[in-house]
Deep mutational scan, measured.
Amino acid sequence: QVNIAPGSLDKALNQYAAHSGFTLSVDASLTRGKQSNGLHGDYDVESGLQQLLDGSGLQVKPLGNNSWTLEP
């Protein structure tokens, strides 16, 4: 069960990665100043990332080996 409060997208993504045990490689300029609506409930990694990114204009991309990145 994930419980991440709304706020900074950077912070939300870092909390989610730490909670879910995956690696997220992101260029900080992509997420700077963006906000997230947070995340509450049970999600697989990709669904949770998509939910956190909702409205940010960013997309999640798998890199393999439980690693992910973001792209515009």
Rank of each mutant, 00 (worst) to 15 (best):
L70P: 02
S56V: 05
S20Q: 13
N65T: 08
V60P: 15
L24A: 03
E46D: 07
K11A: 14
I4P: 00
A5E: 13
A28C: 14
N65Y: 09
Q51E: 09
A18I: 12
R32K: 14
P72G: 08
Q35V: 13
Q51M: 13
D42L: 15
Q15E: 15
V2D: 03
V26W: 15
G57N: 07
G21A: 04
D10K: 06
V45H: 07
G21H: 09
H19M: 15
F22Y: 02
K34W: 07
L52W: 04
L70K: 01
L30E: 05
L9F: 02
K61F: 08
E46R: 11
S25M: 13
T69N: 04
G38D: 01
G41H: 03
T69L: 14
D42N: 13
V2I: 11
F22N: 02
A18M: 12
D27S: 08
K61D: 00
S67N: 11
D44R: 05
S29Q: 10
T31G: 05
N3T: 11
S47G: 09
L30F: 07
G48R: 00
Q50A: 13
Y43L: 05
T23K: 11
S8R: 11
L58K: 00
R32Y: 15
K61G: 04
G55R: 05
Y16R: 00
L58V: 02
A28R: 12
Q50S: 10
D44E: 08
G48I: 05
K11Q: 14
L53Y: 00
Y16V: 02
E46Q: 12
N3P: 04
L52T: 00
Q50T: 13
N65Q: 09
A17G: 05
V2W: 11
G41D: 03
N66G: 09
A17Y: 00
A18F: 10
N37F: 10
Q51V: 13
L58M: 03
L58C: 05
G33N: 10
G55Y: 04
L24Q: 01
T69K: 12
V60I: 12
A18Y: 08
S25A: 11
L52D: 00
D42M: 14
T23L: 12
D10Y: 13
H19D: 09
G38V: 00
Q1S: 13
V60D: 00
S56M: 08
G7H: 05
G38C: 05
